[in-house]
Design a protein around this nucleic acid. Structure first.
Length: 445
DNA sequence: GCAATGATGACGTCCCCG
DNA sequence: CGGGGACGTCATCATTGC
């Protein structure tokens, strides 16, 4: 398989090691990074962004709500790349630091804004790429395979009512981003107003945790209700602690007196930025499949915020290569941004997800062409080149590769980036390289 | 009856923070 | 240093559907 080439070229020792060694290596590296996480976080993340020697301007806004125009007190901080790391390239020894809070290059209504960044030469210019994965992925390796572009780490709880910590590696412009309207509600109680009637005062949650594939059982709801009914009035601290713990663990919401239940499918659809019934796909898709597909999806508002910079660049529409499409979070973002999709070439293994995307495509009366592939390995170099000649090239390659072997919940096959599903990352790289290389050749001729 | 689908609970490790 | 949180997988029953 071709991704072996990537793996062998990754570093001299990996090809001969088994998976456990590779995981151990990643763990060792992560511990090493963790050692460096103390200190000024903003500076750290800026340094990691500083893949060449240009400085960064970070604006910290402290605007007072009364007279925001006059009283705007902002400081411009110039961070220089550390003299101890003269190499402009992200290497194994370069520490990975997660920004705290996880605001990426800035999100609406928050104080941190990075107004410009410099990309490595190889990463600059179209076609654009946008790659996503979980925050605990081995980003130093991922970044190295994506032209050394530093990931943008964003927690979607700054944009919607559910947490979703993700890293996004992309070469998009970053100025003049905007949210699609209407902006998502920021709290659980706003998104699900009926819960307000039943939400106990001692449950102080306003945000949901990350949405997973696993679902709480109805037994748990019964256990919680029994525990609360046993005490009339204010429950004792011990009961409260137990209930809160379970609510957080299973993302429960209050829908009745002492009734804490798991989220319904259409509630998750709303939280993830999809219209309700998006994953119904015209029927025939089980509830379990819908929940799983949703938990694996993009948060659409977050994605659209990043992609919004494309709107003025492609007034006539855009050609999209969508890898690991899933339920079409990228397509939904572009659709809600009203960026016409002239062509979408989609790669998706799951039959249910293909139904969902096809149903979305038809239901929203898309004028463009939708071409589907099942296996990313069918997207050979020849086929990619042929598609590009047919449509005049792709404008963006978008996708989040599988995280099964990287996710914290996986206790069976936590094999890291070389795991059976997660190594699909290297296929994203392969395809992206072909697309960017071919685009370069097409421009020359 | 049988197969397909749903429900349930057990399972470990990393990272961060207070 | 201990607690909480993270795009999950599997075997085992129970239920549904033909």
């Amino acid at each position: 398989m071709e991704e072996n080439l990537h793996r062998v070229s990754r570093s001299p020792d990996v090809g001969t090691h088994n998976q456990n060694d590779s995981v151990a290596e990643d763990n060792r590296r992560r511990r090493h990074y963790n050692h460096h996480t103390h200190g000024v976080q903003a500076k750290d993340s800026a340094d990691w962004n500083a893949v060449d020697d240009l400085d960064f301007e970070i604006l910290n806004f402290h605007s007072s709500p009364s007279n925001a125009d006059d009283d705007m007190d902002f400081e411009i901080v110039n961070f220089h790349s550390s003299p101890s790391s003269p190499s402009p390239v992200v290497t194994n020894d370069e520490p990975l630091r997660l920004p705290i809070p996880m605001l990426g290059l800035g999100v609406p209504n928050e104080q941190l804004f990075v107004t410009q960044r410099s990309l490595p030469e190889l990463a600059r210019g179209p076609p654009y790429f946008y790659y996503e994965n979980v925050v605990l992925a081995p980003w130093e390796t991922i970044s190295r395979h994506l032209y050394d572009v530093a990931p943008e780490f964003v927690d979607s709880s700054f944009i919607c009512a559910a947490a979703r910590e993700r890293g996004y590696v992309h070469n998009l412009p970053i100025s003049n981003r905007y949210l699609i309207q209407p902006p998502p509600k920021h709290t659980i109680q706003e998104v699900l107003p009926l819960t307000k009637n039943w939400w106990p005062t001692w449950d102080t949650r306003t945000k949901l945790n990350c949405i997973f594939t696993v679902n709480a059982s109805s037994q748990l709801t019964n256990r919680i209700r029994s525990a609360l009914e046993a005490s009339r009035g204010e429950p004792p601290e011990e009961i409260k602690r137990y209930v809160i713990e379970q609510c957080k663990k299973w993302n429960l919401i209050w829908v009745g007196q002492n009734k804490a239940v798991p989220l319904e499918v259409n509630e998750i659809e709303t939280l993830m930025g999809f219209p309700i019934y998006h994953t119904r796909g015209g029927g025939g898709i089980s509830r379990a499949e819908r929940l799983k597909s949703l938990s694996n999806s993009f948060q659409v508002d977050t994605l659209a915020y990043h992609l919004s910079v494309l709107k003025p660049l492609f007034p006539d529409g855009i050609n999209v290569l969508s890898l690991f499409t899933g339920i079409g979070g990228g397509e939904m973002a572009l659709h809600r941004l009203q960026i016409p999709m002239k062509t979408v070439v989609s790669v998706e293994f799951s039959q249910a997800n293909k139904y969902i995307l096809r149903d979305f495509w038809e239901r929203t009366n898309q004028k463009g062409v939708l071409i589907e592939f099942e296996d990313v390995q069918d997207l050979t170099k020849d086929i990619i080149v042929e598609l590009m000649k047919q449509f005049g090239g792709f404008d963006i390659v978008i996708g989040g590769s599988p995280c099964n072997n990287l996710a914290g919940g996986n206790r069976v096959t936590p094999n890291g980036l070389e795991g059976e599903q997660s190594l699909m990352f290297y296929e994203y790289c392969r395809v992206l390289n072909v697309v960017r290389q071919t685009a370069k050749e097409m421009r020359r001729s």
